[in-house]
Amino acid sequence: MRFIFTILFCFTFCFSIFAASETKNAPKHEWSFTGLNGTFDKSAIQRGYKVYREVCAGCHSMNLLYYRDLIDIGFTNDEIKAIASEYTVIDGPNDEGEMFERPAKSFDRFVSPYLNEQEARYSNNGSYPPDLSVITKAKINGPDYIYNLLLGYVDPPEDFELGDGMYYNKWKEGEQIAMAQPLDEGYVDYDDGTENSLEQLAEDVTTFLVWSAEPELEERKSLGIKVLLFFVVAGLFVFIAKNRLWKSVN
């Protein structure tokens, strides 16, 4: 018994270390993908992808994703081909040694809005819009952080001094951000008739970003339940066997 308590103590201690490193108490949002059996809402990811494509993709790359990955969120092969062909990639060299442009195919990575970091900085007042592929894993409480950030554009306090070309955002570290408010009510029209309020847009695009950062999430959790069950069942049998064996010793 003492042993179990010691282990528990160690763990609560370890986890309290991680918990303590959280930033100021930002509001928590309800997500479908949290919890033991959390799953993605596929239609939310699809809507979120539309938000990304029409708004975020203007500045932010997602270069860990391939167009073929979209099959996971419910697009058909033909739809993916159609989506990819809207973008142009530079390929080559061809047989004459020339680089050439061609429409993107499903095996291509998401096409970046800028050729390189320099061009991105030049177009954005010196700031570099980060790649969004794993952004929700790159922030503490990533999903909540992104969601709050998108809703966090409010009027600055009167005595607040904004930097040149910066915008006030109450959830950003230092409370100012180089990105202008990217989303607002009605910025994107949904095909499935879902209401396009700011909250809805932010929730959908965050869900999309979580999927892109952790595409294995559903598979991981469903396998996890089985592995945990295995250890419980195996542990019970071993426990019974151990008690029987040791009865004679004690």
Binding site: I7, I225, A241, W246
Partner: peptide, 23 residues
């Protein structure tokens, strides 16, 4: 005798590790 105790300990610890790895 010890093997069975170790196996039990491994089941308990395996459970904890799996909980972290998967969730």
């Amino acid at each position: 005798y010890m093997i069975i105790k170790d196996t039990l300990a491994i089941c308990v610890f395996g459970f904890i590790i799996a909980a972290v790895v998967f969730f």
